[in-house]
Design a protein around this nucleic acid. Sequence first.
DNA 1: CGTCTCCTTGACGTTCATCAAGTATTGTGG
DNA 2: CCACAATACTTGATGAACGTCAAGGAGACG
Lengths: 244, 244
Amino acid sequence: MTSSHSGFTPSCSRCALQSVCFANGLHSTELNRLDTLVDRKPSYSKGQYLFKAGEEMVSLHAIRSGIIKIYSVLNDQEMIHGFYLPGDIVGMDGMADHHHLFNAKVLDDAYVCSMSLDQLNDLSNEITSLNSQVLTLMSKEIINSRNHASLLTHKSAEEKLADFIISMMEKYRVRGYEYMQFRLAILHRDVANFLNLTPETVSRVLAKFHNEEVVSWKKKEVNIQNVEALFEYANLQLPEVFKQ
Amino acid sequence: MTSSHSGFTPSCSRCALQSVCFANGLHSTELNRLDTLVDRKPSYSKGQYLFKAGEEMVSLHAIRSGIIKIYSVLNDQEMIHGFYLPGDIVGMDGMADHHHLFNAKVLDDAYVCSMSLDQLNDLSNEITSLNSQVLTLMSKEIINSRNHASLLTHKSAEEKLADFIISMMEKYRVRGYEYMQFRLAILHRDVANFLNLTPETVSRVLAKFHNEEVVSWKKKEVNIQNVEALFEYANLQLPEVFKQ
DNA sequence: CGTCTCCTTGACGTTCATCAAGTATTGTGG
DNA sequence: CCACAATACTTGATGAACGTCAAGGAGACG
């Protein structure tokens, strides 16, 4: 166990994830308004759903801890569109007609802040920066999804896996958690699906990374041993932060 | 030549594409407000850019005629994220930080209605239904992009191409244009890229579709001869409209 | 402690990419 | 408006990356 993100958060104004959540850019008085409207459900446990495809969209959800996977089903085949970690927002696909088209399943016990759509709309009318924050989040979701399509189409199995591990690492780093080793409660089968590979291929590539002491991922624990090599495998520029 | 969409449109209130554009859901007085703020540029000709990756986002664009392709470049490789037809909105990727991350290139001479971001924001504050229309459009873009990822990962070459032709047909049908045969000024090379295939594979599959008299696509003219077979190739349910 | 699910490792196969060479179509400049 | 160059498309032969199938081993969970 390398990082345990406490589930309990008393208020938006004291939340460490403020800057990546709805709350980004709000003044303290506005934060307090937001605070009163946020619904902090007790917790979701592994296997539960935040929402399912076809259901009415009641709220937008901010992940405070845990992991959520978003997926659709096509011809009996699951297709995973993303894994959402603390600080991420899920449910924006339902804004179009107030019904979800994807499933949101809990992979690792999660605390979630939910904001009802009606209240969000009301508050957005009063607080323009909240509205523009929602637009920003949706725009980022579009960018994310397109970048993922690029990865799916233009990268090899090794590049995909290196890229995936880096993106998880970066999420933790940006949010101020430990990032050279961290818990990642995602099945290899699910990663394979997300990257459009088979579990066998994922297994083979991870075995290679492990042999070469680049990164190990065993029993839901990721351990990055050679960042430089990892970025090379991903065909990505090594950021300054990691140099030396 | 099967359909020529006239470029000239005097106002939003008389525009045939109203219901799929920003304007959807607005009252006539609101439409007139919108009208005064929309910039109807003379026209874009083939090869021009609406915007390029890295540029500041000044406006959101509604396509009135022509075709726009949205693409990114990764390791010198083009990756096409979509083709946008009359009634479609492009540029929403820039809402996050007011800079575009993708390129928008004109494939077939186009008329475009542009709305400056500042004015859109101002007007959105006044007219809530305009704001929610923008949210709806962005949400649809997310859905689109994810569905495309599903197609890329879970479909065969034949399914992909059948699916693509159907999606173009449906766009024309929904907008009230001729849809059993229509002009489609997209290079096969670009379609190949969009579907993550090679031009050779596209050529082979189209040759097959042509031999079996399902659909022909020659010289930028699409001609659907057997819708039923086309839907079968795409592995999609034949909609009621096409039955009998 | 036994069962179920997940992961691993090996042998083999398939779809589609790649390479290559020729044909058609489009664009251009005189 | 024609000639010819550039670009797009076609068709065939070959190959590779990763999928599929299979069977054994390790964790997880009750």
